[in-house]
Design a binder for these strands. Structure first.
Lengths: 205, 205
DNA sequence: TACGAAAATGAACAATGTTCAAGTAGAATC
DNA sequence: GATTCTACTTGAACATTGTTCATTTTCGTA
């Protein structure tokens, strides 16, 4: 069997529209929040019928998940691009990058972390893995900063630090809860990481 | 004017039903998640009409907010009841209490933090204040542990620590993201607080 | 060109939040 | 106790929005 398919006109148009639909949905979520996203608005903006959206994504959740998938990909790409020179600086930069992404795409990140599936359907494995991979990015620098410590301990520590940073950022940016200005948040995150590293016995430069 | 109203039969029934409706809505949110809450289910379970729910809460958001209001009250009560003897132990107990509450009422806490209002309506002031007050509970022990430090600095630190604890717990309990067992989380939180205090220069007992 | 598979369509349906005209029950007045 | 008035209750009807599917259209292939 030949898996190298010739890209037909049909395939090209299909992919093009899929991309367009995700693009439109992302724009709507980003600007007005997940709760305001409507299938009909997406279909209208894309100039196609509601049925085509269903044909492409199965259901509403499918569309949302496709947007969320790309969100976590974009986040991971951004975090992965952070230079990994000095491990201490690496941690700070990871936190900064996360903050910048969260500030720019607050609603998209909320959609990723807060969206619940209909009827307890399982959360897609691939998105879960990508989130885990993002969580793990603090692992490498922590290993370098804490040589000799138990491997699993450091892994848990990495996940915990990431969760802490996530909490500080997501509550910090929550407008309804008197948001801290991003610059102020940036300082706080830096202080948080320094303090925590000091507590772990890492000498400060 | 006399504000001491005689409690009429009408008032008593009204309050009784209001309480019942909130009770039912809370039970449904707690057991099946906010997304599964339906006005008709609530009205049916309470043995009244849909219209009466509207009459009492204005709209769907009103009902949800009433449940959330009681959730934050219950949380605050629980955190306030924590003994405040030694400031270090106080911090640990606050985190433990938060964890216990979150583990017992995961869906209610999600409803409190994740529910978005329709059409950008403002978040109710009183709930905001109660959440802020809960955040502030870490302030007093930190002041005792860090005498001589700038007041505003400590206030920000308290909010940051609370946010970090919130992040560790809420991501840690997220089943879809491979939840950490509560006992394991408890250890991690204790370690987190100890490490952070050490980093702040607080001598460990 | 003719045929068949795949996709697109949108009317109809289902679920669910919301409104409101009409009815009912409790309070107030006599 | 009867009457009147006010406030509450009701549920049918409506509006919004996710979902389905028979029909039509489009595209690849023989």
């Amino acid at each position: 069997m030949n898996n190298v398919q010739v890209e037909s006109l049909r395939d090209r148009k299909k992919l093009q529209r899929r991309t367009l639909l995700i693009e439109i949905a992302r724009g709507l979520i980003a600007s007005k929040g997940l709760r305001s996203l409507k299938i009909r608005d997406v279909a209208d903006a894309a100039g196609c019928s509601i049925g085509s959206v269903y044909n492409e994504f199965g259901d509403f959740d499918g569309l949302i998940l496709s947007v969320n998938r790309e969100t976590v990909q974009a986040l991971t790409a951004r975090l992965t691009a952070v230079p990994a020179d000095d491990p201490g600086r690496h941690l700070h930069r990871l936190a900064d990058a996360y903050l910048a992404f969260a500030a720019e795409h607050a609603n998209l990140l909320r959609s990723l972390f807060e969206h619940r599936m209909e009827n307890d359907r399982p959360f897609p494995e691939d998105i879960l893995l990508m989130v885990m991979k993002a969580f793990d990015l603090m692992h490498a620098p922590l290993v370098r900063l804490l040589p000799g410590r138990d491997g699993e301990e450091v892994a848990l520590l990495a996940r915990m630090m990431f969760s802490a940073v996530h909490g500080i950022i997501s509550l910090g940016l929550e407008e309804r809860m008197v948001a801290v200005p991003p610059d102020r948040l940036r300082e706080q995150l830096a202080q948080f990481i320094d303090t925590h590293l000091a507590g772990l016995g890492v000498p400060h430069k």
